[in-house]
């Protein structure tokens, strides 16, 4: 178990080890649902919630069920069904209590199931041998980092909505370039903390 303060992990996963801008995980919904700040913010919250929940549950299942029975090799399938069940639950809650968000997220809400950032967090925390507290901090931090990135991108995309973008770059093209520039900008944080 690495001796890192959970708070450091939390900050690192927002800025220096941002899931999208440093690890390039969870790109599909990042590109697709970043047209408006409001929806991006909604999806960000959903992802953060799922990330926090699944990182804690997956940690507990891994260390208290899989490890004692020497079933670590089952971790992929176990993590994936846990994430799927969790997303299903979130979908029911959002449909019931936040119908506007439910409609604007559309298919991307169930697609959180296969958001690689989420499985990524669960796998990283195992590989990096984090403790429960560290894992939880890592999950929340990654969620907030993901939200920060998608909301920032949505803000930029709203600003350039009427900008004279070259024809061939409209839509996804310019979005990928912006993402690259944002990733470059985030390198600026890399001196603050370093975690591996």
């Amino acid at each position: 178990m690495p001796d890192i303060n959970p708070f450091v992990i939390f900050m690192a996963s927002i800025f220096t080890n941002n899931m999208i801008l440093a690890n390039f995980l969870g790109m599909c919904s990042f590109i697709a649902v970043s047209k408006e700040i409001k929806t991006a913010w909604g999806l960000g919250q959903a992802v953060t919630f799922v990330l926090t929940g699944t990182s804690i549950i997956n940690y507990l299942i891994y260390h208290y069920v899989l490890v004692p029975f020497n079933l670590e090799y089952l971790r992929f399938i176990v993590f994936i069904i846990l994430i799927a069940a969790f997303v299903q639950l979130v979908e029911m809650i959002v449909e019931r209590y936040l119908p506007t968000l439910y409609y604007s997220l559309g298919i991307f809400l169930p697609l959180i199931t296969v958001n690689c950032a989420i499985l990524g967090v669960s796998l990283f925390m195992i590989i990096r041998q984090y403790s429960l507290l560290q894992s939880a901090a890592f999950g929340i931090g990654s969620g907030i980092g993901w939200t920060l990135a998608i909301v920032a991108l949505a803000g930029i995309r709203q600003k350039i909505k009427n900008a004279p973008v070259p024809k061939g770059l409209e839509g996804a093209g310019i979005t990928l370039i912006i993402t690259g520039l944002m990733a470059l900008a985030f390198i600026g944080f890399s001196g603050i903390v370093s975690v591996q």
Binding site: F69, L71, I77, V78, I81, L82, L89
Partner: peptide
């Protein structure tokens, strides 16, 4: 193994 996997899936299905 089968029992543990079934138990996990069963608990999730119940929830």
């Amino acid at each position: 193994t089968v029992f543990i996997m079934s138990a996990i899936a069963g608990i999730l299905a119940l929830a």
